[in-house]
Amino acid sequence: MTGNVICFDLEGPLSPQDNAYEVMGLFDNGHKIFEVISRYDDLLTLEGRKNYEPGDTLALIVPFLIYHEISERDILRVSERARITDGSGFLISRLEQLGWVPYIISTSYQQHAYNVGEQIGIPPERIYCTFFPLDEFREEIGELGTSLIEDLERDILKKLYPNINDDNRIKERLDRFYYRDIVGTELEDVMRRVVVIGGQRKVDATLRIAKKVKTSLSELIVVGDSITDYKMLKEVKVEKGISIVFNGNKYAIPYSNVGLAATDIRFLLIIISAYMRGGRSTVMDTVKTWENSYDEFVKDPEKIPDDVIPEDLKNFLLTKVRDPEFFPPHFHYLE
Rank of each mutant, 00 (worst) to 15 (best):
R83M: 13
N168Y: 03
D18S: 13
D181C: 03
Q97K: 15
I120Y: 06
S108R: 01
V5W: 01
P13M: 07
F34R: 00
I75A: 10
G224L: 10
V213Q: 01
E150R: 12
I309A: 02
N168M: 09
I120G: 12
R266W: 00
N257K: 05
L144F: 02
L43I: 14
D28V: 12
S216H: 09
S293Y: 12
F132L: 13
W100E: 06
E186V: 00
R192L: 14
L60R: 08
L174Y: 02
T2D: 12
L10V: 00
D74E: 12
R173A: 13
N165I: 04
E325W: 03
V298W: 03
F34W: 12
T2Y: 02
I33C: 05
V283L: 10
F177S: 06
T2H: 05
G121I: 09
G199R: 02
G198M: 11
L60P: 01
A113N: 06
M232F: 09
Q111A: 13
C7Q: 06
G30M: 08
I253K: 14
G199E: 11
D28N: 12
T206D: 04
G145N: 08
D189H: 04
D295Y: 06
D9R: 03
Q200K: 14
P254Y: 11
E118K: 13
I270E: 03
E35I: 04
P54F: 04
Y40A: 08
L144D: 08
I70G: 04
I209F: 02
N249W: 02
N168V: 12
F131W: 01
G184Q: 09
V194K: 05
I164H: 09
L60I: 03
A252Y: 13
I104S: 06
I141V: 15
L317R: 02
Q200P: 00
F34N: 13
G278M: 07
I265R: 05
G117T: 11
L157F: 05
K214E: 14
I141N: 05
E69K: 15
K314G: 12
F8E: 08
R169W: 01
L334D: 10
R94K: 14
K314H: 11
P124I: 03
G99C: 11
D155N: 10
S256M: 05
D300L: 09
N29Y: 10
R193W: 03
V195R: 07
V196K: 01
V183F: 00
P16Q: 11
E291H: 03
S15Q: 03
L260E: 07
V298C: 12
E186F: 03
F132G: 00
